[in-house]
Design a protein around this nucleic acid. Sequence first.
DNA 1: CCAAAAGTGTTGCTTCTACACCCATGC
DNA 2: GCATGGGTGTAGAAGCAACACTTTTGG
Lengths: 242, 242
Amino acid sequence: MDFRKIDNLSVDCVVLKLEDNALNVLLRKRTLNLYNENLPVIDDWVLPGHYVLKSNNLGETANRVFKELTGENHFNRNQFRTYGNAARIKSEKDVLWVRSRGAKIRTITVAYYLIVASNKELLNMDDSLKWFKLKSLPQLGFDHLQIINDAYDDVKTKIITDPLIFDFVPIKFTLNELQVAYETILDVELDNRNFRKKVSSKSYIVPLDEKQKGVSKKPSRLYMFSKDVYNQVVETDFIIHK
Amino acid sequence: MDFRKIDNLSVDCVVLKLEDNALNVLLRKRTLNLYNENLPVIDDWVLPGHYVLKSNNLGETANRVFKELTGENHFNRNQFRTYGNAARIKSEKDVLWVRSRGAKIRTITVAYYLIVASNKELLNMDDSLKWFKLKSLPQLGFDHLQIINDAYDDVKTKIITDPLIFDFVPIKFTLNELQVAYETILDVELDNRNFRKKVSSKSYIVPLDEKQKGVSKKPSRLYMFSKDVYNQVVETDFIIHK
DNA sequence: CCAAAAGTGTTGCTTCTACACCCATGC
DNA sequence: GCATGGGTGTAGAAGCAACACTTTTGG
């Protein structure tokens, strides 16, 4: 056990990304083979996370995990829930794993999510990290299935009223990319003409004099989200309502 | 220090109630006089809360606090954020107080809010408990001002899309009570006729064949919120949009 | 009969929905 | 010149905002 750690407090990170018309979450392989036939071989997946150091804030701990994964320094992280029930670590595998880390069985985890733009590749994708579609998750350790579902619920709620959608698409995006992002996350179909009308009434979605390149079809116009403009308008007419 | 406690984990409860056309929060007086002239006299207010026992879940801990305050067994509690920064307990008073409880200076607190109906009186209102308007709070300990403001922000957001409003009013309420509840919480004015039209289009707000009694004016019709009906309709057309 | 709050309708305007075809480009 | 996805307009329906007076009751 690392003496710098708080031994009952961790942060877990739900990293989300749109890819192949589906919402994906980043998971880390959890392996622990104790060379003892009586103990289970741990071979499943968990959320990336970290114990909180005594010298770190909660948000700093999440930033550290995000930075290790993405190589970037700035992100919109979102703390959405904390899990600390007495029995949340109870399966044999989970208990073994926590003990092997020198931590307490009654560990509290503060959960964050981070949205990665669809055109970003993570820097440090070693073999232990893999994207999974939310609709086909592998065997997960701890209560991480619950945590992922809670994160997704929170995203679906906030995306109506907060400008979260722009984190999912590239900085310069096409309107169709934006529409598909909404459709994928909320599992709805939107009318293309009506969607474009709604979007073009928003001053904070600004058209650029720039077009896609390298596509073998009509290149589409690019747009950007202006956070500055957004912060100056009080938004009550949301882009979608579903 | 109580050996049954987890010594770095607490739950704080923001109890909210509408009264006198204002949103109120319940606070507990914090006093500690060490009879030592060199130490500060603590004489301010904090949120009711409790350290988490090793045998209790987080939600159970919140329930326990709520039950002690209200005398009731069932409530909609809402976990909205967790505070665990390294420096969140730093003022001399706060440090003294935490030490007097035998707890760690690096304490993590999971914050919940509870809404109390405007016609409910708390059972156990001793002298150490008092309601304060959110707009005129007294001197608060720890980061509890922050926590209260975060709770309020969360309520303001959720009240648009979730049926939170019905927790603020009596079980049998008048439409004007409902309107005033929205107006007070969101600090807006609503047109009475349009509000009533909108509300009466909602199947889950059911009119009773019952009227107010003991009022010296035209008694108004009473309504109830039907959770069962609400859960069967997918609500996308919200009562208000502000 | 008076005071106090409850309750009720209409109109013009805005926004929403549904729907099908032409356009620009790379190959 | 063709395949591919990009981009555009209209009409009818629905919902929204603005607005003032009558009703019911207790005292």
